[in-house]
Design a protein around this nucleic acid. Structure first.
Lengths: 352, 352
DNA sequence: CTCCTGGACGGTAACGTTTCCAACGTTTTA
DNA sequence: TAAAACGTTGGAAACGTTACCGTCCAGGAG
């Protein structure tokens, strides 16, 4: 009864020395057993293993990582808002791959300034992680050059350092989206661009290329650079462009959040519009198929992005992979959901 | 030119000893400066700081954590599928709070068996984390009792151990949902239950209480226990229950994924139904307001769940908080979106 | 003038592990 | 038979940090 303390028995965890004493062997022998048991007689190993079980010994990973050359068995992942399904997918997938190799993943959150990212990264490095996976912000990453830690960039390259990069074929995706709309006969296609991320630029380039291939000019007044990358900005911009005298007949939202804003605006405008524009988004999102206007998207295997990055980083960290920096590009595919074939009456539903 | 190696200059990171030598002081002095600089003459501290900057010294957190008593400056977070916005919100929020105190967060993924959870937790403990935040699975967590690490459970309590717990008022939420529907005149309300999680049981209890308070019997054939917690299972169950001779007039989906399945099924059934049932979900989700049937939900501040957990754990880890295990319960609120007032024609849209 | 106090600082032990080297016993080789 | 080779084991050093203990010097009290 009186043993139910506020949970502070504070029993010190047993160490290898305790195990060695208990098993009647030397410290080195215990270490050998713990690490696979090569070069130890079977009978001795048995005794050691028994002692480990009895004491409930668990190797102290911190002490292990202190040894020279040995990095910890942790990878770091630095990315933005986990609430964005895109980042969440990357996190989940890389976590899985790392876990299978016995590696943990330390997360660095960076919603803030690029300065915050640098600080977060350095904190992570000071924890002796075995490698870094970074979804980089705009800032310069040259400070990582001599850090002595392998780095893999995810989704977009970083400036100032030549490292592995795993990304999506943004240009191809942008081209696919535009081609799809052009093929459907659209000639005035608006494109909504989130603030100057690398990826967005590539998507725009693909968009332009498709137009050029089709021999159609891009109306520059429909290339809309948003001040922010959230749904609200896209909603506002959509409303504005659709109320122009010559509105577009289709909209390409270069981001999943942007697509959400576009749809919201279209829903609110509702009957005011002569014809409902077609919408194509970049990156699939949950419920995209259930909206009044099922929205066509350009999608890629985001989980594979995370998996590839983790795999590559693990190989770099273990020294297995010594090739020059790799550039892995995953393909995009069009998921048609018949946007543009919107049922005429869904517009009159209550907004909000 | 020939300096562009495969990025393996392998410059060993400077240590406190290097700093001490450079500044012409002793090792202890450097340590004092790094840790706030008390008991060091100003002029000396200046010299040390200069040396730190010149060498680009960064404290090795691993070595620091090795010292007796000192835990690492990392918290562990063990949860399920990050792709679920619920978990993602918790992760994001706890990350923020931890980061503000200079703590990193190590993630443990547990999509697997309860055995996998135990393994993940022990791996994390072996990394000397300062505390554990766990969204527990069903299994017993008694093995954490003597671990000597503070633990905070999130969203649901665990058996076998008396520890802090931060959760949502599930029963109140269930009651709110049922009361709302009863008030709208519904008398046959189906409830879809994900597999036996603690939270689900409480939500059901609230659901029953509301009925009892209103003097209305719960039709037990409408209390539907699903084999799995995903949208597909809910979709199937919804189809079945709605095609019965006496279908419910309202459905309470006890989970966000379940709500998605319900809506999908209703969309597919479309015109086959005499009247569209009202739908209430638990936990808000993105785009919930934009669906053909804007869905009413019972929501709580999930981010606050994560923030509270992180704050509590940090206080426990630092020894600031020595109270007996706390039980923090956050309220739920109803977000009405007028489900049941569905426009009649939205049903004939293309499914898929 | 001497003693004591106290602040500033240097040195060293310790944390728990891995790795290296030496020592031992056994077997193989010359 | 002696030497060499090998497998097994114990012991000690090292990793980078913090905490403790002493030493030193300046200044105040007696």
């Amino acid at each position: 009864m009186s043993e139910t303390f506020p949970s502070q028995p504070e029993a010190p965890r047993p160490t290898m020395i305790d195990v060695a004493r208990r098993a009647g062997v030397g410290l080195g022998t215990v270490s050998r057993v713990v690490n696979g048991g090569h070069g130890v007689r079977d009978e001795t190993a048995q005794r050691v293993r028994a002692a480990i079980d009895e004491l409930g010994f668990q190797r102290n990973e911190v002490a292990r990582a202190l040894r020279p050359g040995k990095k910890s068995t942790s990878l770091a992942l630095v990315l933005g808002d986990l609430t964005n399904p895109f980042y969440a997918s990357i996190a989940k997938a890389s976590l899985e791959v790392a876990g299978q190799s016995g590696f943990a993943v330390v997360l660095g959150s960076v919603d803030e300034d690029p300065e915050g990212e640098k600080r977060a990264i350095q904190e992570l490095v000071s924890r002796q992680v075995a490698g870094l996976m970074i979804v980089p912000d705009q800032g310069d990453h040259a400070f990582l050059q001599g850090a002595g830690v392998p780095v893999v960039f995810v989704d977009r390259p970083a400036t100032g350092i030549d490292a592995d990069i795993v990304m999506v074929d943004n240009e191809g995706g942008g081209r696919l989206a535009a081609e799809h709309l052009l093929q459907q006969g659209h000639r005035r296609i608006a494109i909504l661009l989130a603030p100057s991320y690398y990826t967005i630029g590539r998507r725009l380039r693909g968009f332009r290329r498709a137009h050029r291939s089709a021999g159609i000019d891009v109306d520059e007044s429909l290339v809309i650079q948003l001040p922010e990358g959230n749904a609200e900005a896209a909603e506002k911009a959509t409303r504005e462009v659709m109320l122009r005298p010559d509105p577009p007949t289709a909209i390409f939202a270069s981001t999943n959040f942007l697509a959400e804003g576009v749809l919201r605006a279209l829903g609110e405008l509702g009957g005011q519009l002569g014809a409902e524009p077609a919408v194509v988004g970049f990156d699939d999102f949950r419920l995209a198929d259930m909206l009044p206007t099922p929205v066509t998207v350009v999608a890629s295997d985001i989980a594979e992005l995370g998996r590839s990055a983790a795999r590559l980083l693990l190989d770099r960290a273990s020294g297995t992979d010594t090739r020059p920096p790799q550039r892995i590009v995953l393909p995009c595919a069009l998921i048609e959901r018949g946007s543009g074939e919107r049922p005429p009456s869904a517009a009159d539903r209550k907004a909000r």
